[in-house]
Design a protein around this nucleic acid. Structure first.
Length: 272
DNA sequence: ACGTGAACCTGCCGGC
DNA sequence: TGCCGGCAGGTTCACG
């Protein structure tokens, strides 16, 4: 499910449910996946923020040091206002109305940590700038990406040059910028196109409430579908015409991820 | 240093 | 109808 737009949509939807609420108890039966959750008991949620694909619940308790409840949705995780067959964690709230974390594949993770201290989470520790924030500068992005010897799509998926880009939005952004996913040594002009494409794609996807694929596995906490899937130009469109030039969209495997692109708009440039 | 592949998990879909 | 392989939005780690 979850890349930046889906996580941000989730954050916006559950924020009114959680803000100012006291967490009574987090109920689950997998302590290795949901770590130190007992530390959250009795604490109040003062802020709900997002870093890349991670949700951060800021927890306070008078007289105690602040804590952070980290949630990563994995591939299939999501919050629900009603229990489902794949409920893995139940957040019991003082309001009496629980919030449910469901996750069919169990790749999602929850952990309570000291604020800003992310042991065993190198991706969160090294998270790049938020693409929709003022702190995401074109100049710095060009510096981080242009001329590098790494293939651009895996580099985007690393979360280092920019936060929150996953498989769907990497493919969509590279299509918009007309860059082949396996391209290395990008020119500054190409990186500037990619910068603009990432911001525009993420912004539009957040406004649409994220992408719900044909398997329906991602839905908003109230069960509503996202709306961005109808505007995908390449993702999950192999064999269909490129919306820009009509050439059939191709699917290949890159860094073990399904990768969709237009072979005419996005050609691999030989740059040794 | 970098790229690759496997591992972690479950469910669904298409092919036979 | 039913079984089986393949595939899925992510992250981490072990190898060469």
């Amino acid at each position: 499910m979850p890349e930046l737009p889906e996580v941000e949509t989730t954050r916006l939807k559950i924020e009114p449910y959680l803000l100012g609420q006291r967490l009574l108890r987090l109920e689950h039966d997998a302590p290795h996946r949901y770590q130190n959750t007992h530390l959250a008991s009795g604490r109040t949620v003062t802020r709900l923020t997002r870093r890349g694909k991670y949700l951060l619940l800021h927890l306070q308790d008078p007289g105690e040091d602040d804590l952070e409840l980290i949630v990563h949705l994995g591939m299939t995780g999501g919050f629900r206002f009603a229990a489902t067959p794949h409920t893995r964690v139940t957040l019991h709230l003082e309001s009496g109305e629980p919030l449910y974390f469901q996750d069919a594949r169990r790749f999602g993770r929850v952990a309570v940590v000291q604020p800003g201290v992310y042991p065993g989470m190198p991706t969160l520790s090294g998270m790049g700038p938020e693409p929709l924030s003022g702190g995401f500068s074109e100049r710095a992005f060009v510096e981080a990406v242009a001329g590098g010897g790494k293939m651009i799509k895996p580099w985007l998926l690393s979360q280092v040059p920019v936060a929150g880009v996953g498989n769907i939005y990497a493919d969509e952004s590279l299509w918009a910028a007309r860059i082949h996913p396996a391209q290395t040594r990008l020119k500054p002009a190409e990186v500037r196109r990619l910068y603009t494409a990432i911001r525009a794609t993420m912004q539009a996807a957040v406004e649409a409430g994220g992408s719900t694929l044909s398997d329906g596995s991602y839905q908003q906490p109230d069960g509503v579908d996202g709306g961005f899937q109808t505007r995908h130009n390449v993702y999950d469109r192999a064999g269909q015409p490129c919306t820009r030039c009509g050439t059939e969209v191709v699917k290949m495997v890159l860094a073990q991820r399904g990768t969709h692109f237009c072979p005419k708009c996005q050609t691999l440039k030989d740059r040794l």
